[in-house]
Design a protein around this nucleic acid. Structure first.
Length: 545
RNA sequence: UGGGGUGUAGCCAAGCGGUAAGGCAGUGGGUUUUGAUCCCACCAUGCGCAGGUUCGAGUCCUGCCACCCCAGCCA
């Protein structure tokens, strides 16, 4: 795990603490909208918000930004909590919802109306769009902009009372239709939505907009540093305007940082949702997805994600991080903690023709460097399996494989010499005949032989069959998200193979482990008691094979 | 061509006027019964470009250029 983190936000917080800009301790918040599952981009924000609070002795709220009942649901509030907890963060009693503040939000809106800073507008959505102007042209004032305070108040109260249909009126801030910042052109504060809210039920039929809600909730919760992503930079003047124009005695600073981009992945909720809806993946927890539930099912430990987030840093620069960094973080957290075993994913039968006795038991350490992980018994007998790709009929200088008439060591077992290859009609090897060297037993080898390669293997007596799922990038373009998503998908992002694994892994229900030379694996939730399924979390680094 | 941002190695990223940290990737070597791990070494005379200020500029000034975001009654 990497040590002391430093970035422009932490530097700013440190300064604020030193200069007594914050009275007490710092307060942050992670404010997801419960309309989808969290992904690794959210993890960056979670690690930042909870991380700085831990580092500087502060508190963090988990606040659901639930102001749009049309898109939000309880399913998502539950999955989000599960994911944040899984990442290893604790909001204690600071679980809140924007909807907790609906009454106060409404009160502040009436205050804005009383002071002539907001008005009820009867323009349709299309008309508002048409009068907003463009990037280069100013907008024009709504004809309803100069309604009296009394009329505005009356109308707003009747909006709340449910007298008007959806879309018929909105409450707008009275700012400046000529502002070069489109967000300041009399933005909508409240809209009419006759919809059931997952928390407040049918007690409201008007709902506040994000820009109006977020800053007030931040202020109400005493957030000392309101951290968000770059696309909200243009919203900051509005964030400040709202707080400057209501009676509230706290004004958090909004500080923006860049989103995480990960090569060959998409973070957009829209695209993620459509991948699932169109059946390109099997759900939010598909192991190929960068969702936290997908990564969890893939077998990625939360520590690896936190390490990754600290290594990518926090800046305002647009970024597209290479997947090799995530892979590195996963391997390095698994390296010292995962017990080893052997699995043969694509088995080639091997008969040891000079082995006539009962199987012999061999002892193998579960980790080459961590004796605390224990050891296990391997049986070695006449009928074995090796990886099909570990045999090649003729030797080559570059490859380290078992060849006809060549030698190889079977890891923690004996050295064998291949004496015959049986092939099918296509010339493909279907079985090997080998002789083992009795005096080459692992740990007490007196043979003097030094084969170039060591292979993983299982014996038929010691193995059970299993399915192995091998994953590649879901997309075959570095930055997916073009018009034709189907064109960008990697057709071989998921490959399932039937193979064999040491019995002990299944019987003792090992969690994550390394199958030597094949990578790190975890048992998938699709496993049954008779048919285990293993996901490859990540391969070992190297390349060849 | 309005506004807001950002440019340091293949990818991230330090740097705050005193002579380019670190990580990932890559390359070479050592150890190794996992082509793993581990260890060592190498990897920007140059910081988007062009001028200027200064004894000295990635850091300051001026002018360009490139890229990202914004025209939801989404967040």
């Amino acid at each position: 795990m990497s040590s002391a983190v430093s970035d422009f936000i932490r530097n700013r917080i440190r300064d604020d603490i030193e200069n007594d800009v914050v009275d007490d301790s710092i307060v942050t918040r992670f404010p997801p909208e419960p309309n989808g599952y969290l992904h690794i981009g959210h993890a960056k924000s979670i690690c930042l918000n909870f991380g700085v609070a831990e580092e500087f002795g502060g508190k963090t709220y988990l606040r659901f930004d639930d102001t749009n009942p049309l898109k939000e649901s309880e399913e998502f509030v539950e999955s989000i909590q599960e994911d944040v907890r899984w990442l290893g963060f604790d909001w204690e009693d600071r679980l809140t919802f924007a909807s907790d503040y609906f009454d106060q939000l409404y009160g502040f809106a009436e205050q804005l109306i009383q002071e002539g800073r907001a008005f009820v507008c009867d323009l349709s959505a299309d008309e508002i769009r048409a009068t907003r102007g463009t990037l280069t042209e100013t907008g024009t004032n709504s004809p309803y902009r100069d309604r009296s305070v009394a009329e505005n108040l009356d109308l707003f109260r009747r909006m709340r009372a449910g007298e008007f249909p959806n879309g018929s009126r909105v409450l707008r801030a009275k700012i400046d239709m000529a502002s070069p910042n489109l967000n300041m052109r009399d933005p909508v504060l409240y809209r009419i939505l006759h919809a059931e809210h997952h928390r407040t039920g049918d007690s409201w039929c008007i709902y506040p907009m994000y820009d109006y809600t977020h800053c007030i909730c931040d202020a109400l919760e005493g957030i000392t540093h309101s951290l968000c992503t770059l696309e909200f930079e243009d919203h900051r003047p509005l964030y400040d305007w709202v707080l400057d124009n209501i009676s509230i005695n706290f004004h958090p600073p909004q500080i923006e940082f860049s989103r995480l981009g990960l090569e060959f992945n998409v973070m957009s909720k829209r695209i993620l949702t459509s991948l699932i809806k169109d059946g390109h993946v099997e759900g939010w927890d598909d192991p190929r997805l960068p969702t936290l539930s997908g990564l969890r099912r893939r077998g990625v430990p939360p520590e690896a994600i936190r390490d990754f987030c600290s290594r990518v840093g926090v800046t305002k620069q647009a970024n597209l991080v290479e997947t090799s960094l995530l892979d590195f973080c996963v391997r390095s957290t698994l390296e010292d903690t995962s017990p080893r075993a052997m699995a043969v994913i694509d088995p080639l039968p091997v008969e040891v023709i000079n082995f006539d006795d009962d199987d012999v038991m061999l002892e193998a350490p579960n980790h080459p460097k961590v004796p605390e992980l224990g050891h296990r018994q391997l049986s070695f007998g006449r009928n074995l399996f090796i990886e099909r790709s570990d045999f090649r009929e003729t030797a080559s200088k570059k490859q380290r494989k078992l060849t006809l008439n060549g030698l190889a060591r079977l890891r923690y077992g004996f050295i064998v010499e291949c004496v015959e290859v049986k092939k099918d009609a296509h010339g493909e090897p279907v079985e090997l005949k080998v002789r083992y060297v009795p005096e080459s037993r692992s740990g007490q080898d007196t043979s003097g032989l030094k084969p170039r390669s060591t292979l993983h293997w299982v014996s038929s007596a010691n193995a059970v069959s299993a399915k192995f799922r091998l994953f590649e990038n879901l997309f075959n373009v570095r930055e997916p998200g073009g018009d034709d998503l189907g064109e960008e998908l990697n057709p071989s992002s998921k490959i399932e193979q039937d193979g064999l694994v040491e019995r002990v892994v299944v019987e003792d229900e090992w969690d994550r482990c390394q199958f030597e030379r094949n990578g790190y694996f975890v048992k998938d939730s699709d496993s049954t008691s008779t048919a285990p399924v293993f996901n490859r979390i990540v391969s070992l680094s190297s390349g060849i094979r």
